[in-house]
Design a protein around this nucleic acid. Sequence first.
RNA 1: GGGUGUAUAGCUCAGCUGGUUAGAGCGUUACAUUGACAUUGUAGAGGUCAGAGGUUCGAGUCCUCUUACACCCACCA
Length: 846
Amino acid sequence: MDKQDNFNLAKAYEPQEYEAEIYRLWEESGFFNPDNLSEGKESFTISMPPPNATGILHLGHASTLAYQDLMIRYQRLRGKKTLWLPGTDHAAIATQTKVEKILAEKGVDRHSLGREKFLEKVKEYVADSQGTIRNQIRKIGSSCDWSREAYTFSDSLSVAVNEAFVRMYNDGLIYRGYRIVNWCPRCASTLADDEVEYQEQLGKLYYIKYGPFVVATTRPETKLADTGVAVNPEDTRYQDYLGQVLEIDLAGHKIKVKVFADAQVDSEFGSGVVGVTPAHSAVDYDFAQKNDLEIIKLIDEQGKIMSTGGKYAGLTVLEAREKFVKDLEAAGQIEKIEDLENNLSICYRCDTPIEPLTSEQWFVAVDKKIPGRDQTLKELAIQAVKNKEIKIVPDRFSKVYYHWMENLHDWCISRQIWWGHQIPVWYSEDQKMIVAISEEDALKKAGGQKIARDPDTLDTWFSSSLWTFSTLGWPEKTKDLDLFHPTSVMETGYDILFFWVARMILMSEYLLESKPFETVYLHGMIRDKEGKKMSKSLGNGIDPIEMIEKFGTDALRLSLIIGSSPGADLRLYEEKIEGYRNFVNKLWNISRFVFSQVGEIKITENLPKTETLADAWILAEFNLLIKEVTENLETFKFSLAGEKLYEFTWSKFADWYLEVAKIEKNKDEILLYILPRLLTIWHPFTPFVTEVIWEQFKSDKFLMINQWPKADESNQEAQENFKDFIDLVTQIRNIKAENKIPPVEFVDCYLESQVLSSADLEVVAKLGRVNLKTEEITGENFASFKSRGQIKAAKAMTEKEKEDLEKYIKSLEAKLGNKAFVENAPPEVVADNQKRLEEAKQKLAN
RNA sequence: GGGUGUAUAGCUCAGCUGGUUAGAGCGUUACAUUGACAUUGUAGAGGUCAGAGGUUCGAGUCCUCUUACACCCACCA
């Protein structure tokens, strides 16, 4: 008690009282910026996956930030020049959709507002939510370099976007073409293939009498624009028609279709005859290319039937379907209608059903050889992973990556929304197309003519695919780019492996001829206790900010990291976070206790001398811990590292060593050796509480930039011997409990041990709360003592324990009696079993 | 239709290249607690490792099949 004046820590850790202040101190220190870290060392870089500039941070963000901050803090403590570059994404479609929704509530739509005014509204909205996001990233404790904060739609990143576009165009890797695309009628824009999601639905399969055939379709209205009929080449029923052009009457609407054969047609499905609508189905479009079919566009960009639909013109798709089916029925042309489960394609941002339609758009050619490189973009991206240049953790996602890449089609990059990078293409008065990096450049190229810009914008993933290097100043040759690229780790969820990770690899390999990162670490999705996805509609979402307020950031971070493994989903719930809050408080109180015990609060610099077995043991355990945690962190086994730290801190250091220290006293050297180092290795996991405790050491530097401790040799003998120590104490407590002897009641006890000194045994007795007798107590069974009496701990064993031990001995004897085992098993395994048998027998005999 | 993952205590999960009597946290039961911590301590109960075969001296761990769940991809009109 008399020593407690020299430290000042409340009885329980209250995170809210410290976190904001600690973060402010870190930020002001400038050490988030690698320029202020020591010179000339190896660098370590992570580009923060930019959160969408919409709404607020959810648990998924909290988890990705916790992982990244863990790696960043670890590497900073290891002395690397550590850069974590934060930023946000303008998230073209997502943001535009969101603002449109807000405007719609006021009865305004973007067209009535006009492009300029609408974009202003979006900018306001983005500025607002970026502020929220920045604050929330800070709340998680993210030690990122705010001075380098980036935004995909900033001026400098827009330069990178135009540069990339122009280079690809000049290399023939970006082209404009009239092709079939995914069209979202609500967004009034194209979508990339991977931006289309599928929803199972119960639809109808209509069998339509179609000239000499019966054609089965889920979308009868599209038959108005059929230009072909496909059958399987093996199908004997229709051989005579192959190659013919037939005129078909569909309830008065006349179409001309060419009959052809293709192996893709399944003669078992539906009627075995496919009506081909090239303008509104990707498969049919391919058929049209192969068989030279006419392409008749039927559905326009608003999802309405065009004049090519005859009397159905002007109707929406669904209206036209209803009317046309009625007309066909009236004409006796519906043979039957069946129920059919199929996938409805919907927009990934607004869930609107997708219309495939033909349109003139910009594409990235993934299968075209890059000039001078004899490789396609696709091949480039596959190779980077295949030759292990880039490592994906967990490895199984490499396979998923290859599969996706190999099946990648040309990437449609033009969007018809307003929010985003305008395509760097202008048209001169004489209708010449000018592709240029800027308006000035385009004007120059136009040679004095007036120019007009293409209104289309770029897919948001085009700009984010440049993220690892556009944020470092590319296309300028900057010092940052040189120092920090390729980045070290890309930490993100497996759900955006395709959207983002794959495209970053593709772009970096093409534009920089280098990988964007060395390792991709993929975390899983956060789910609720039942394993359900957290979502607004289910109301099962946990708000990370609320959890931080309730339990503290450190507790939330631990709950996200411990118990998770890469690529696997994680269930999170409040009790779990609460449990880690308890742990953080334990660490706090361990520190309080240490500070209360020692004469002066300072750090022991050198490995201390050991006085007792417990001393030697705890140092041995601690050295082993440092070694293992370091190894685990180097190999991305964050959860395992956390579990080991947890176990050491609570079950070894607190439960045993500190309890022994209360008895043995005078442990200043060792306590002040372990505690600061323990705080250091905990720091990447729980940055706040460790930094707060660290302040008590009055060090001239933050724990954040302390040095990662080195592991010394471990004393195996001490580890082995201390097991006996623990074993004896546990036995005593056990016997007392079994005999209903209150823990506080000191009964007599005789102890003996081969390895423990008499001093050790005295400590054992104190921990077990017994009176240590120097002579063996004979003649009586301890059970008869009931609540008072003597114990010879080594002899006491319950019936159950006896039985278990006997069983164990039998199984070992059987094993060792087996010739095959003795002959085939490695000698050390046999010897080990032999030893165990002897020990067990001895125990039983005692 | 293809592919991947998961299945271990009531719940959430560890268990690395096969070799202790299969572990942890939460929950639960009993006891304790004014001296670091009730956000605590001590002790206990609780498991045919989804099922069936196989490989091996030895399988929770490797192989095959089956079942259940989850996810991803794909152009069944």
